[in-house]
Each structure stands twice: as C-alpha cells, then as structure tokens.
Design a binder for these strands. Structure first.
Length: 575
RNA sequence: GGAGCCGUAGUUCAGCUUGGUUAGAACGCUAGCCUGUCACGCUAGAGGUCGCGAGUUCAACUCUCGUCGGCUCCGCCA
C-alpha cells in the first residue's frame, strides 16, 4: 500500500484506506478511545484508535515512530479543527505498528508555546528540527535552493564545484587551516569564498558559473554570521554591472512570486555609498524606514549650545533625525531611545519638540527659526568621529522607525549600494587597506588618483541590501594583470602570494563580473527570522561550538604525530 | 579582545531587591480512572549538587569575586 503523507490526507481520500508513517505528536487517551496526532514532514493528521481493535494504542507514547493503516473519514461538522491543515478529516486506525520507541525526551516537540532555550535546541538538534516550525524552515530553504538552481541553470549558468581544501592567501578573514600529512608543516586553507577559483573558471572559458558554495571564516560569530555559511556564488564573462544585477533581480523575483505570491519591485534602485551614509547612517540601510538623517552642523557653528559648538570648533559634525509625530514620545521613552547611543560613547541625545506651537526640550533655546513642524521631534548628536557618529545615527534611525511603527515588516525593499571606495585608511596602523574586495576593477575616471590619492578611487562595486541586511557584494573584476598587481601593492598585499592567479590573468582573461550572496541570510529574511541559525540544520553557537556532536574536540596523540603537530598548551576545560 | 543580559525539578519559569522555616508553579513523567477528544479531564505519586569554584557570614538559591556555558552588541568579518 502506497504511503500517504500525513499533511496530504484530505476529503478526496474519504472511505479509502491509507498507510501513514510518522511520529506520535500528541496523545489523548480517553479510556475507551484514543486520539493521536500523527506527524511527518508534511504536517499533522488526527488518528482515532479503538483499543479493542488496536490494543497497541494503549502502549504508545509521544515521539514513538508508528505506522497506521486505516480508513479516512470526514469529521462531523462540529468537530472540524480549523487550526489543522487536515482538520476536516481523520483516520480510523485498523492496524497500528510500532516501528520504534522513543525514550523520555529532554524537551517537548509538540508544545510550540514552550520553546526550550536555544542551548537545549542545539544540543538536541534532531528534536528541534522535528518541531513543525523548524521543519518548515528547512523546507523553505530547500525550495529556495531548488528554485535558484533551476533559474540560474536556465539562464545558461553552469554549476561547478571548487575545492574545499584550498590555498591560504593573506587577505581577508582569518583562515581555517588543515594540516597536510604528506607534506608535514604545510597547510591547506578552507576557502573564505571561491573568489579566485571562479575568476579562474572565467579565464578557463566556462563563461558563466554558479555554485551554492560553503564559505569558511575563522572570525567571531553573530546572529547573522556563522563560521561556515552558504553563498550563492555567481560569475559571468563579458558581463558588466547591469547584467549581474538584472540576473539577481530576476532570481529574487522568482522567489517572491513562488514563495509569497508577490511581485518584488524591480529593478532594485541604486544608491551611492556616500548617499547611504549621509541619508541613512549605514551602508546597508533598511529603506522601508522612511526616516532620513540630516547634517545640521552649520546651525551650531556659533551656538550657545556648548557641547555642539565645541564639536563644530574641533571640526566635528552635528546630525539630526526628525521624527514626524515624535512629540508624543514620553520622557521615559526618549531615555530608552537615548540608551541606544551609549555603546557609541554618547552620554545622551539632544532633542527639541514642538507641541501647541511651542518648542521644548534641551535644544529648544538654541534652535530658533527652526522649520520643525507641529508634533515633530528632532534628535541631534554631534561628534568628531564621523564613522562613529553615523553608526549611532543609523542606530537611532532603526530604533525610532520601529518605535514609531514606521516599518512594514511584511514589505520587501531591496537596493543596490554602489560606488564604494576601493581603499580605506586603517585607523590603528595608519595603512591603506582594501575597503571591500581587492579583485575589483576601479572606475575608469578614478584611475588617475590610483598613485596620488588612492583613497579617492571608487570601485565598480555593488552591494545588494534587502530590508537592512547586507546580502552580498558584487563587482566588475579587474582582468588586467598589471593593474591587479598595482591594486594589491596599494592595499599592502604581496603580489607573490597571488602568483598563480596573476599568471592566470595573463593567459587571456576575459572581462568578467560576478557576485556572492549570503544564502542563509536570504532564507532568514523570507522566513521572517532574526537569526540565520534557524535556517541552518546544524549551526554553531556564538563561541563556535557544535553542542550536539561536541566540537571542536581534542584528537588522539597519534593523529597529531602523523601530522607532525605538537600542541603546546591545552586548556583543560576544552579537552 | 571588550560590554551587557541570562543560568533554580526533564522543560518553561517564580523565589534573590531586604541572607534565616520543608525552594514553589505549570507542562512533562509514573500509576490508576475515563468512548468523541483536539492544550482532553479527574485522582495519586516520583522528581532539585539552585551551572561550577572560592570568599563574606553564626547562616548563601539570595551578597562579592572568579570561572564555564547560552544569547545580544562593539572590535573583527576584503
């Protein structure tokens, strides 16, 4: 008898006998009759057991694995369960086979409202993934992967795999190293991204490539960062910015349509990096939030408001955020908002509001002639460190947008952030470092500054930003060997380390462009999640540990000997 | 590397502010009853190194310090 998925049982099966396999989700033993919800990947179905016919029903427990053969019937109209997808029907068990018993479990799979601590969920991930919510995220991820693959393949892109054991190169994040047994003292590196491989594939004439690529970076974790994450990696020969952007927009259009039945607005609007920082205080603005930041330094050049006047004297800037209808926020609420800028070193926020035609607040005496409208509130911060000030203003904008309910969470708003600088100054070392991606082609019109003033050079870079998440970074690559060498040198990197790549460029490299996008983040957005951990079957904790398997772990002395490795000191707690 | 929040039955939490009886609740679990439940109901019961270590104190779940673990953020992540 063919198996039917629990979630697929419907009125069409009425009076038919079906075979169901799954886990006992919830049991209601009424003595003379037992009801249970049977669960599999597809959903839940109610099974009715008469213990006289199926005595096994008295012996089952939550999460036992069972097989049911039984007849489908429509539920009486007063017993339809609206919350259940299969709530109109039920299955009367004729045979119940226990395929496997479940031990007493550390937490309950069936109680959505009693979500165990994330530590528990990670330790017993197989149970956590059984929760219908998590099962759905895995299903969503699969579907997005499948849709994406088909879309890219149809667009003429070939899926090509690149090595997991790669060469360590000095740029970028910290490498994960894998010791070589055959060549003791030498190491492979796990790839931070397939960047150089995919460019070399273009040199090889593969024309268009894509890959769902694992990227590994030994850096500290966050809600949106894992040691290993999955990138949709794309590269195309003889392509420019427009071609890559259009391709990506089409990909998101497919997802939005197939998953949400909605059109996503394309093309995604472009915004320069400078504009993003000036108006939103961030290079990854959530443009669903209509609030914009302004620079109001000139208002405080000779101001009586000492703090800001001092800032201006020292060459700093003052920036403001106007909140429509913000005057209704209480002092307490303003204090809560002000807390948000303390991590950036600001003791508080200066503000002024207009109610009943009157200005009030700490700034009210110093903002005469202001264009502040009735009911509005203006928040101001001043500082010397522009980057820090922007970050704080960006945070204020986010917090206020949420507090005033200005952001429609169901909305999707994507944009391209362009014209990033190629280089920036590292504050600590005073050295010039790559701002984004050193294999990017500089803009033609900025080439003249390359030697004189490299900080002025903009790259042909474009970041995709969706709902305030940076999803990925694309660029038109540098396919000129000499220029690439120059870029590496300016960034303080030794071209010798990239010899294999530079040689490949010399061998007839086509102009090419591409992008890499964080797939976990994209899934998180479509799933409405704040953390990418719930989109990954087996994620790591913020300290980089796998709690279920217990990793990283110690290894046998013999394994180390084989690799020619001696561990100097072992912290006892990490065994 | 730094800051913050959290850690108490199997699970989710209360108790800690102001140190002092036997550390409670809900769910789960065990046993029994129950023929239309769907958070089934009813009765009874078991279950705790209060993360770990040190200190203060006559006395620590409670106060202090350290440590381990989880989460959030800064640094870091081209």
């Amino acid at each position: 008898m063919k198996r039917v998925y629990c979630g697929n049982v419907a009125l069409e099966h009425e009076q038919k006998t079906v075979r169901l396999c799954g886990w006992v989700h919830r049991l209601r033993d009424l003595g003379g009759v037992t009801f249970l919800h049977l669960r599999d990947r597809s959903g839940l179905i109610q099974v009715v057991c008469d213990p006289k016919k199926v005595p096994e029903a008295d012996e089952i427990h939550a999460e036992d694995v069972i097989e049911i053969k039984g007849k489908v019937s429509a539920r009486p109209s007063d017993q339809v369960d609206e919350r259940l997808h299969t709530g109109k029907v039920e299955v009367a068990a004729e045979k119940l086979t226990v395929l496997n018993r479940a031990c007493n479990l550390p937490f309950s799979v069936e109680r959505e409202e009693l979500l165990p601590a994330e530590e528990m969920r990670l330790r017993y991930r197989y149970l956590d993934l059984r929760r219908p919510e998590m099962t759905a995220y895995m299903g969503l991820r699969h579907r997005m992967m499948h849709l994406g693959r088909n879309y890219l393949a149809e667009a003429g892109y070939w899926e090509i795999e690149t090595p997991i054991l790669a060469r360590s190169t000095p740029e970028g994040a910290r490498d994960f190293l894998v010791p070589s047994r055959q060549l003791k003292g030498k190491f492979y590196a796990l790839p931070q991204s397939p960047q150089l491989y995919k460019q070399i594939l273009m040199v090889s004439g593969m024309d268009r490539y894509f890959q769902w690529a694992r990227c590994l970076r030994d850096e500290d974790l966050r809600a949106d960062r894992q040691l290993e994450h999955t990138q949709i990696d794309i590269e195309a020969s003889f392509a420019d910015e427009k071609e890559i952007q259009t391709l990506v927009e089409g990909l998101f259009a497919v997802w939005s349509k197939e998953l949400n039945g909605e059109e996503i607005k394309t093309p995604f609007p472009p915004m320069t990096y400078a504009d993003a920082i000036e108006r939103f205080g961030s290079d990854k603005p959530d443009i669903r939030n209509p609030l914009e930041i302004r620079t109001v330094t000139e208002k405080f050049t000779k101001s009586e408001f000492r703090i800001f006047a001092q800032v201006v004297e020292q060459g700093g800037t003052v920036r403001s955020l106007t909140l429509p209808d913000g005057a209704r926020l209480s002092r307490k609420e303003l204090d809560t908002i002000a807390e948000e800028v303390k991590p950036f070193g600001f003791p508080g926020v200066a503000w002024v509001k207009k109610t009943d035609g009157l200005l009030s607040g700490p700034l009210s005496k110093f903002t005469e002639g202001t264009d502040l409208k009735e009911g509005n509130l203006e928040l101001c911060l001043g500082g010397k460190d522009a980057k820090n000030l922007n970050q704080a203003m960006g945070r204020l904008r986010d917090v206020c947008g949420k507090r005033l309910d200005l952001v429609d969470e169901a909305d999707m708003a994507a944009l391209w952030v362009t014209d990033f600088p190629m280089f920036e100054l590292d504050e600590d070392s005073g050295r010039i470092v790559p701002a984004h991606h050193i294999f990017t082609s500089p803009r033609d019109e900025d080439l003249e500054y390359l030697e004189k003033d490299p900080l002025k050079v903009r790259g042909r870079l474009f970041d995709i930003v969706l709902n305030g998440w940076e999803l990925g970074s694309g660029s038109v690559r540098c396919h000129d060997t000499e220029l690439q060498k120059k870029l590496l040198k300016i960034a303080g990197l030794n071209p010798a380390h990239f010899d294999f790549f530079l040689k490949a460029l010399e061998a007839g490299a086509p102009p090419h462009a591409g992008i890499g996008m964080g797939f976990d983040r994209i899934v998180a957005i479509y799933a409405g999640l704040d953390s990418i951990r719930d989109t990954i079957a087996f994620p790591k904790t913020t300290s980089g540990q796998g709690l279920m398997e217990g990793q990283p772990s110690g290894v046998e002395e013999s394994q180390l000997n084989e690799l020619g490795i001696k561990v100097r000191k072992i912290q006892e707690d990490h065994r």
